[in-house]
């Protein structure tokens, strides 16, 4: 009897679980490492092959019309001083494509191939801006600018509280 009941639970919840997670037309294999798939084109083949992507992207909303998950709304950060951030660690995070990747859009000292989309961050040390303000800009800039291109790193769970503290310390140290 027990396996049948378990089967019943699986059947009943299948529809709900699917709708609560990624949409049906997403390139996902729930059993693959990281779940998110990337296509692999095989020469002279009528079949498309798939490989696991380096990161699981299923937790965030997609462009699918079937995706019923809402994007988290702009969020005020719950920042508590003191900062306790390490600018050296912050710099590492800013240059790391897997974490902050700030360098993709911002020009930062001592690094080639920068971006020019983001605001100039040089000279923050002299600007006298509060840590709380800088923390909020990284955590969720939509609060102060609804049309910003900058990702809400805190609200979307991309960076942790400590990582944002380290980045804040790094930005505040820029001459």
């Amino acid at each position: 009897m027990r396996p049948l009941v378990l089967g019943g639970i699986c059947l009943c919840l299948a529809g709900a679980a699917q709708a609560a997670d990624w949409p049906a037309d997403a390139a996902v294999d729930p059993n693959a490492q990281n779940r998110t798939l990337t296509p692999r084109v095989v020469v002279n083949s009528g079949r498309l092959e798939w490989e696991p992507h380096k990161r699981d992207l299923t937790p965030w909303p997609t462009l699918s019309h079937l995706d019923r998950r809402a994007t988290p709304r702009p969020q005020q950060a719950n920042y508590n001083p003191p900062l306790r951030g390490d600018p050296a660690r912050g710099r590492e995070i800013a240059m790391d494509p897997a974490r902050g990747n700030c360098i993709a859009c911002h020009t930062l000292p001592g690094e080639s191939w920068p971006g020019s989309v983001g605001q100039l961050l040089l000279g923050y040390k002299q600007r006298g801006v509060s840590d709380a303000y800088v923390y909020q800009q990284i955590y969720d800039r939509r609060v102060t600018n609804p049309n910003t291109v900058m990702p809400p790193f805190g609200t979307l769970g991309v960076l942790s509280d400590q990582e944002i503290r380290d980045l804040t310390a790094y930005v505040q140290s820029l001459e």
């Binding site: 997403a26 990337t38 997609t62 462009l63």
Partner: peptide, 23 residues
């Protein structure tokens, strides 16, 4: 459509299947 999948992957968006309505 594979290019769109690549665009999605590069910007951290879960890609959709080729031929999906959104693509």
């Amino acid at each position: 459509h594979l290019r769109m999948m690549e665009c999605n992957l590069d910007t951290g968006v879960q890609p959709l299947l080729p031929g999906s309505q959104a693509y």
